[in-house]
Simulated scan of single mutants.
Amino acid sequence: MRWVHPTREAGVDPLTYASAVLLAADDNQFHPPSIGDFFPPALFFEGTAFEFTRINLAQVIATVVLVLVLLIGTRRLKVVPGRFQSVIELFFGFVREQVAYQVLGEKDGKRFLPILTTMFFGILFMNLTGIIPGINIAGTAVAGVPLMLALVAYVVFIYAGIRKHGGLRFLKNSLVPSGVPVYLVPIIALVELISTFIARPVSLFLRLLLNMIVGHMMLVLFFSATHFFLLSMNWLTPFAIGTFGLSFAFTLFETFVYVLQAYVFTILTAVYIQLAVAEEH
Score class of each variant (00 low, 15 high):
residue 123 I to C: 00
residue 177 P to K: 14
residue 26 D to N: 14
residue 95 V to P: 00
residue 44 F to L: 14
residue 247 S to E: 03
residue 200 R to V: 13
residue 25 A to D: 07
residue 55 I to G: 05
residue 104 L to N: 01
residue 54 R to D: 13
residue 229 F to M: 07
residue 231 L to A: 14
residue 210 L to I: 15
residue 192 E to P: 00
residue 274 Q to M: 14
residue 149 L to Q: 04
residue 94 F to A: 06
residue 25 A to Q: 08
residue 175 L to G: 00
residue 245 G to L: 09
residue 70 L to E: 08
residue 158 I to D: 03
residue 219 L to Q: 02
residue 234 N to Q: 03
residue 113 L to I: 07
residue 87 V to Y: 08
residue 54 R to C: 06
residue 76 R to N: 15
residue 132 I to D: 08
residue 196 T to I: 14
residue 145 V to M: 07
residue 6 P to C: 10
residue 212 M to F: 02
residue 117 T to I: 12
residue 24 A to R: 09
residue 160 A to H: 00
residue 9 E to I: 01
residue 186 P to N: 08
residue 168 L to D: 13
residue 4 V to S: 00
residue 110 K to G: 06
residue 93 G to N: 01
residue 201 P to K: 09
residue 188 I to C: 01
residue 61 I to M: 11
residue 203 S to H: 12
residue 137 I to S: 01
residue 107 K to A: 15
residue 247 S to Y: 01
residue 161 G to V: 05
residue 207 R to L: 14
residue 126 M to H: 10
residue 99 V to D: 05
residue 132 I to Q: 08
residue 241 I to W: 12
residue 44 F to S: 13
residue 29 Q to M: 10
residue 1 M to P: 00
residue 248 F to L: 15
residue 213 I to R: 02
residue 83 R to Y: 13
residue 242 G to Q: 06
residue 67 V to N: 07
residue 125 F to A: 13
residue 97 E to R: 14
residue 155 V to S: 10
residue 124 L to W: 07
residue 62 A to C: 04
residue 263 Y to E: 01
residue 114 P to Y: 13
residue 129 T to L: 06
residue 140 T to D: 07
residue 58 A to W: 08
residue 245 G to N: 03
residue 182 V to R: 12
residue 118 T to Q: 09
residue 195 S to L: 14
residue 81 P to V: 00
residue 244 F to C: 09
residue 166 G to V: 06
residue 198 I to N: 05
residue 233 M to T: 13
residue 105 G to C: 09
residue 179 G to Y: 10
residue 244 F to P: 01
residue 80 V to E: 11
residue 18 A to L: 11
residue 75 R to F: 13
residue 250 F to S: 00
residue 148 M to A: 15
residue 72 I to W: 10
residue 90 L to K: 09
residue 147 L to G: 05
residue 135 I to Q: 03
residue 94 F to G: 04
residue 222 F to P: 00
residue 78 K to P: 07
residue 73 G to I: 03
